[in-house]
Amino acid sequence: MTRVHDMGGRFGDGPVHPEPEDAPVFAEDWHARALAVTLAAGSLGQWNIDVSRHARERLSPKDYARFSYYEKWISGLADLLVETGVLTDEDLRGETAGDKHPLTSRVLKSDAVAKVLASGGPADRPSNVRVKFEPGQKVVTARQAANRFVDGGHTRLPMYATGARGRILMIHGTYVLPDSSAHKLGDAPEPLYAVVFPASELWANPEHPQDEVVLDLWQSYLEPA
């Protein structure tokens, strides 16, 4: 069992409402602020991308469903700041003064922004885990979308793709394993594959017999079929 964010295939959400191509990038000023505060706080170096994704996923199902997109970001960020000890509950309540913080030397300055955004954070790493599958090979995904290290932990195998038979389409290389990284258990890099599944393997009533879904899946999510 996964969490509320794992919604691929779910029924009941109604139509998609496309916005025009020229709609503003940020519908509200606070959306832009929420994104920028989140990126800037990330630069303090107290967590990685997997930790921050998991912080949003750990919002209660009620909050997750009720919050708009950037509300999830800002709320996940507030939780992370307290969990990592950067801020305290009292800070969030506004009960503390603006004392100098030990992390101020890490603050993202405006003249560093372009460089930080342009350099990104690659997720490929050397690994001594042997590549087990080759393109074209048939595989089956794990029966459960579950983190093997932490109960209820982060994983990137969606529930709709569990126990499904597909074939290896591409070998991407060896990548940080989010299941480990999200819990600060190390990068644990291993082979990552693009795996293609016939829609009929995933859905009771696929729209077309030739349709397919591709997912990027780590080697430990897969077994030979």
Binding site: F26, A32, R33, L35, A36, V37, L39, A40, A41, L44, L81, V86, L87, D91, L92, G94, A97, G98, D99, K100, H101, L103, T104, V107, L108, K109, S110, A112, V113, A114, L117
Partner: peptide, 18 residues
């Protein structure tokens, strides 16, 4: 506001990101 007061974010950097 909290992060700015503690010197953990630079509002000018936020403007730059946006």
């Amino acid at each position: 506001t909290i992060l700015t007061r503690k010197g953990l974010i630079d509002p000018a950097a936020l403007d730059e990101i946006i």
